[in-house]
């Protein structure tokens, strides 16, 4: 872990809110994106991302300072997202044929909130469609796929975040992308 982050954490442990604000600035984008891709609803993802940082703040003593901070933080974000899916959307992801209309409105909205980069290769419509298909994956595959392909993390790091052995992570990525392949093919 970088010395800069380490120094900030030591200040946070003394109750320094300014130091924590710097930590939030450093990690808010990946944390928000993990939550957003996990649950697909911008407002709920923002609440979960805020909760992630609050939980990190109140549990900062439990963080082991010689380990990578992002691993610990992303674990909180992933666990909160999975808890949210279990509690608030029971079975939603198990239903392969959700009515498309309301989903489409929701994901169109999601897509328009994202800025259009100059070198844009995947259209907003396609992005919204892929996200709606990600939302149909069981959460355990969803988290592995998001950490691997959207956050571009190594298998080792994903295994530490999810607290699973590397071969299990690999299996989840394989099954997740296989399930996505079938779903994406259907709508072509």
């Amino acid at each position: 872990m970088s010395d800069k982050v380490k120094q900030l954490i030591l200040k946070v442990r003394k109750g320094d809110h300014d130091a924590f604000a710097k930590i939030v600035d450093l990690y808010k984008k990946p944390v928000y994106n993990i939550c957003l891709r996990m649950i697909g609803i911008p407002q709920e993802a923002e609440d979960l991302a805020q909760d992630t940082f609050l939980r990190a703040y109140t549990n900062i003593e439990r963080y082991e300072i010689d380990k990578k901070f992002s691993t610990w933080l992303y674990r909180i974000a992933t666990n909160l997202s999975i808890d949210y899916l279990r509690k608030k959307k029971p079975g939603a992801y198990l239903d392969a044929k959700l009515p498309g209309a309301e989903d489409f409105t929701m994901y169109s909205q999601l897509a328009t909130e994202e800025p259009l980069p100059e070198e844009h290769v995947v259209s907003r419509e396609t992005q919204a469609w892929v996200q709606s298909e990600i939302n149909q994956l069981p959460p355990k595959y969803r988290s592995a796929i998001i950490l691997k392909y959207i956050e571009d993390l190594s298998l080792k790091e994903i295994s530490e975040i999810l607290e699973l052995p590397v071969p299990t992570v690999k299996t989840r990525i394989h099954r997740g992308r296989e399930a996505l392949r079938k779903r994406l093919r259907k709508r072509k």
């Binding site: 939030v24 808010k28 984008k29 957003l36 980069p117 892929v130 796929i145 992308r177």
Partner: peptide
């Protein structure tokens, strides 16, 4: 497709809200 999904910016005033 997965690797080309955009990263959304963090919501406005996110840090202040936290």
């Amino acid at each position: 497709l997965l690797t080309h999904l955009d990263q959304a910016p963090a919501p406005d005033y996110f840090t202040q809200k936290v």
